[in-house]
Design a binder for these strands. Sequence first.
DNA 1: TTGATTTAACTGGTTGACCAATCTGGTTAA
DNA 2: TTAACCAGATTGGTCAACCAGTTAAATCAA
Lengths: 237, 237
Amino acid sequence: MRLKIEKETEVVSNPKKGSEDIIISKIRELIVSKQLEPGDKLPAERVLAEKLGVSRNQLRQAIQRLEFYGLVKKYPQSGTRVSNIGVTALNGMMTDILQLQEPDFKSLVETRLILETNAVRLAATRRSDEHLRQIQAAHEAYSEKAINGLNAVEEDLMFHLKLSEASGNSVINSLMLVITPEIITHFVANKVCDKDENHLLIKEHQAIIDAIIDRDPDRAVAKLEEHFNDLYKFCYD
Amino acid sequence: MRLKIEKETEVVSNPKKGSEDIIISKIRELIVSKQLEPGDKLPAERVLAEKLGVSRNQLRQAIQRLEFYGLVKKYPQSGTRVSNIGVTALNGMMTDILQLQEPDFKSLVETRLILETNAVRLAATRRSDEHLRQIQAAHEAYSEKAINGLNAVEEDLMFHLKLSEASGNSVINSLMLVITPEIITHFVANKVCDKDENHLLIKEHQAIIDAIIDRDPDRAVAKLEEHFNDLYKFCYD
DNA sequence: TTGATTTAACTGGTTGACCAATCTGGTTAA
DNA sequence: TTAACCAGATTGGTCAACCAGTTAAATCAA
């Protein structure tokens, strides 16, 4: 079960994305040139694929990406509509999507700090008893491994995920869900955080939980920031 | 080009998602029952599809969703690996993904506030001259329509998108990109923000820009919060 | 003329066969 | 003994044909 480190095949960015990008930019052209207007139905996949000179599958994947960003909405057996959010917004956002770069680790961590700080603030006021129960369960899972000196990166991040769940903000929760695995991967790859200062971290977690129990947002945030200060030292030394 | 409001077909949540959810939960079962371990290669799509009793396409879509959340990574012509982030994390995150609810508008706006406040803080210290140029261009586009009393929701949000771009944090930028179109859609649907207090908003935008020009994070955030106070009044009255 | 009803075309979704890149194991040449 | 190599099996990706639901025009009865 031990995996041998594969050669990094991702030095070259996913080449498949290339054709997708081209298709998206062509659709953008259609929009800015008024051949396609916000709210309109897209031409049928078959005809649009031919018009753009690509296969229907490639087109479908590009459309799927656009749908993910909410720029397009599919209605099964009926058609696909361009979101009615104006040419300016469509053009701008498509351009942005095409320029999206692979996230760097620093941005990832920085964003996590931002999201989680605010999630904890909200959690301290909104948490239900069920939330609390889950947070404590996650904390116990972490403690158990940490006390025995085992690597508990995953349990740690699961704990933090439960915190963001308790925020009662479904969007924050989703976003945390998106960025968390990448962070774990980096952590594991770089062997950060498997020191044995875990006992410290347990206390810090507990302090956060206590503040949430007491419904004290400011203290919760303060304790979280203490907690992250230590993590920061880990990551940037 | 004025849109007539279509009947809301989305009362019923996308039914296609159902089978995907089932597949994902079956894959989760494989993992928690140790038939599949973190870092392992998934069985080939064909055999896994048969094992789960679903079509290969359905399986592929489920895998694609897992890949989006970073729980799985595809290596073309080679295989698909489960991310090496531990059983606990995989199980927890898959459970979370299955429970993901459609985002409510309040969460959406709240998250936007959080992200953008921090984006602006960062932008004030990190912005390049190019960033500044784009922000000002977006602001002019907005002003032009707003002064003439036209609805400029899109231009407004494009302006804010440029702000988050200037943060230099690619992740924040991506996340803003994801939540922005939904916000625009809601705004347009609910006819918010097409009052003619636009002249006020122009000044507020300008105040934010000025603070960013002066590289003054605190003032930038303060001005943004003023700006959003007004927006909040719009949304919740 | 009008209204309901049929029907044919058109939609995104699904399917199973095919493709080219990759990996694997045994074989061969040094 | 070792390293290079080659063929066959396996992989995810692609494609063209097909499916089922939707839509709107055509049809026909009143």
